[in-house]
Design a binder for these strands. Structure first.
Length: 345
DNA sequence: CAGCCGTGGTT
DNA sequence: TAACCAAGGCT
């Protein structure tokens, strides 16, 4: 009776953390809420980088393999570039893998093998932007950082009925959230908000009836709640065509390493020409593949030897076709070689 | 700021 | 099914 209703409704973090204690997802990189254990900064950082623009389901297997093979940041820093890139193959956004290695090596060289425990210190490392610096600071080091990802943007935009389109709305969202971050359990608070966005306050069909923030959510019950957060219209994707060269010799296939910058940078690939607007020739098999900003039809053609084409200058190697799975080809080429080998079979 | 950078799941 | 979207960072 002594507690005002406004105080109860206003306890945003309390309601959210109570919900989290009941409903937290069980994830390989997450220790149980209130378990008292200290999360390993290396594992937190690795998971957060893998989770950038990538779903939990896609990350799980990669996280298990990476932590098994490279249990500490020292192990990862000592790994070979090609091994790490191959282990990342299929996860996408390959600049993350290059930055991951660079970051591990900076942590070893400049920080004595320990991750900086402040948001600013983390933010200065390669591959760590605003989100990842805040999330690692909060989850691994208990810092009351303002952690904002796409889930948080959606939850806050709805809770506060922010109709400003992204990315302009980021200022309002940050200002609103900064007032809500608790000094106690900031890491659980951040993860709770993300869990809520992923499982309750979903892009479509949010489960408002079971939401712990329902009482004071300004968008609750609105027919147009799915409109929030407002996003800019997307641009149309062009369609491109390209060739890939199948150069086989004694059961081995000629692979190249793509340049660090640009599409699939640093990854092993089949050699081939530039991707253009029109198909150049027909081939043995072809695959359609969607990238973020264009769609590609890639056609496989036989070539006799690497030195006969424009591939002579490319750094390459012969790879046993029987062991092609271990080559670390990105999905685009994996689809193509799978189709080729299936056709021959 | 806006464009670039992968992939797979969901609706 | 085509569109949308995801624990973003870099230039």
């Amino acid at each position: 009776m002594s507690v005002q209703t406004s105080d109860i409704v206003g306890d945003f973090a309390g309601r959210l953390l109570d919900w989290y204690d009941q409903s937290a997802r069980v994830l390989p990189w997450r220790i149980a809420p209130n378990s008292g254990g200290d999360p390993d900064p290396y594992r937190v950082w690795l998971a957060e980088v893998m989770l950038q623009q990538t779903t939990v389901a896609a990350v799980a297997g990669y996280f298990a393999r990476f932590t098994e093979r490279w249990p500490t940041v020292a192990d990862l820093a000592a790994a070979g570039d090609a091994d790490v890139m191959a282990a990342w193959a299929g996860l996408g956004y390959y600049a993350r893998a290059r930055n991951l290695l660079a970051c591990a090596r900076v942590v070893m060289r400049d920080h004595g093998g320990r991750f900086p425990d402040s948001e600013a210190g983390l933010r200065a490392l390669p591959g760590i932007g605003d989100y990842t610096a805040a999330s690692v600071a909060a989850i691994a080091f208990g810092r009351a950082a303002v952690v904002i990802d796409a889930n948080v943007e959606r939850v806050i935009a709805r809770h506060r009925l922010i109709e400003t389109p992204l990315p302009m709305a980021k200022r309002e969202i940050r200002a609103a959230l900064a007032l809500l971050v608790p000094g106690d359990r900031p890491g659980d608070f951040a993860q709770a908000l993300m869990d809520l966005g992923a499982t309750v306050c979903t892009p479509r069909g949010p489960a408002c009836a079971i939401c712990p923030l329902m009482a004071d959510c300004r968008a609750r019950g609105r027919a147009d709640i799915e409109r929030l957060p407002v996003k800019p219209p997307k641009k149309a994707k062009p369609h491109r065509h390209g060739l890939a060269h199948w150069i086989e010799q004694d059961g081995q296939l000629w692979l190249v390493r793509r340049p660090d910058k640009g599409m699939l940078g640093g990854m092993r690939a089949l050699p081939g020409g530039e991707w253009g607007e029109v198909p150049s020739e027909s081939g043995i098999v072809s695959v359609d593949h969607g990238f973020t900003h264009f769609d590609l039809t890639l056609t496989l053609v036989r070539r006799a030897a690497p030195h006969e084409g424009p591939d002579a200058a490319a750094e390459g190697l012969w790879w046993p076709i029987a062991d092609l799975d271990a080559a670390g080809l990105p999905t685009l080429y994996r689809k193509l070689t799978d189709k080729m080998l299936e056709r021959d079979a």
